[in-house]
């Protein structure tokens, strides 16, 4: 099987080779080592990602396992219908896009600021300690986080209702029935969980900056703020760009755990917590048809793909080197 596929990969190349035969051969001769280096990853990607991609056709099929995936009957766009059946279609699209746009911004600004500030802490030990601790929430699964959030917000035993609000002389709040607060709670939880993760990436980028820039800046008497806006940020722009582009690709895919576990399936909150992934999951629980989830997945991919393409095009216009492809 492995052999077949590598052959398949090389046959796919033929058209290009024949059109520009000479130069392509030269390229191969010059960079043969690169192909050898990339081979393990290519093989893995083919098996782990590209071969299973034939499953995309499931989105257009009425699956019957006895007939196999290829043998099942075609169903046209029928599997997509349920996504647009109700007014929920608008709500889940809006929620998914708004939350994810918010997350992209939050996951950029805060971790970047944290990384820059951490870098200014004089004691290495302290900086390391903070960085380690900030990473802790990332270890927790969303299910556990949902327990913790419930520990704070529960009607009967939650801290806010049993301790904090009474202490402030305020009325109890039924948090899981109060829509208005969730557009803040969810980004808060998300940022809290992922802060350490993104900070580490930006830390690595900042550490890679040549010290000479800062030395020169000090000699010129540049303030810290100037150093940040003129040296640090411009120099790590490529990494900021790539992180943003990659997240834009996933803008139609919501973090299932966050939106499903944390609000505890409280129906009253659906207008502000229902996203594409949770909507699809609930349908799947009742209908149990992989065609329906496949259809949603394909739609998410196509939208993500289109958006990345557009943003990449914009990036390319501004600075060719920062573009993804």
């Amino acid at each position: 099987m492995a052999k077949h596929t590598t052959e398949a990969v090389s046959t796919a190349y033929i058209p290009k080779i024949t059109t520009k035969k000479r130069s392509q051969l030269d390229i191969f001769r010059k960079y043969w080592m690169f192909y050898v280096m990339m081979l393990p990853a290519i093989v893995l990607l083919v098996f782990n990602n590209y071969i299973p991609m034939f499953g995309i056709i499931i989105a257009f099929k009425n699956i019957n396992y006895a007939d196999g995936i290829l043998g099942s009957a075609w169903s046209g766009l029928k599997n997509f219908e349920y996504l647009f059946k109700t007014s929920d279609a608008w709500i889940i699209t809006r929620n998914t896009l708004l939350y994810n746009s918010g997350f992209i911004i939050l996951n950029l600004i805060f971790p970047l600021a944290f990384a820059i500030m951490l870098n200014e802490i004089r004691s290495r030990f302290v900086a390391k300690l903070h960085q380690t601790i900030m990473f802790l929430p990332y270890f927790l699964s969303m299910v556990v986080i949902s327990y913790l959030v419930f520990g704070f917000l529960s009607d009967e035993h939650g801290y806010l209702n049993t301790s904090l609000l009474p202490a402030l002389g305020l009325e109890k709040v039924q948090w899981y029935f109060t829509q208005e607060v969730w557009p803040y709670i969810l980004p808060l939880v998300n940022t809290w969980k992922n802060m350490g993760y993104f900070t580490v990436i930006y830390m690595a980028a900042i550490i890679g900056i040549d010290d000479e820039y800062y030395e020169a800046a000090t000699i010129d008497g540049a303030s810290k703020w100037k150093q940040m806006t003129r040296i640090t940020i411009p120099l790590i722009t490529p990494i900021i760009t790539i992180m943003t582009l990659l997240q834009i690709g996933k803008i139609f895919n919501a973090d299932f755990g966050l939106f499903f576990q944390v609000p505890r399936e409280s129906g009253v909150l659906f207008p502000v917590t229902n996203v594409i992934d949770t909507y699809v999951y609930r349908t799947f629980l009742t209908v149990g048809d992989i065609g329906l989830s496949s259809a949603a997945g394909l739609l998410q991919s196509v939208v993500g793909f289109t958006l990345v393409f557009l943003s990449n095009w914009v990036v390319r216009r501004i600075n060719k080197d920062n573009a993804l492809f």
Binding site: E265, V268, N274, T283
Partner: peptide, 24 residues
């Protein structure tokens, strides 16, 4: 009626539990 059932599943989850436990 797969498409309808799929859409209804979400509506039910949104209202049923809160109603049937007397919470609303």
């Amino acid at each position: 009626v797969k498409a309808e059932v799929g859409a209804i599943a979400n509506v039910i989850k949104q209202y049923q539990k809160a109603l049937e436990t007397g919470s609303v």
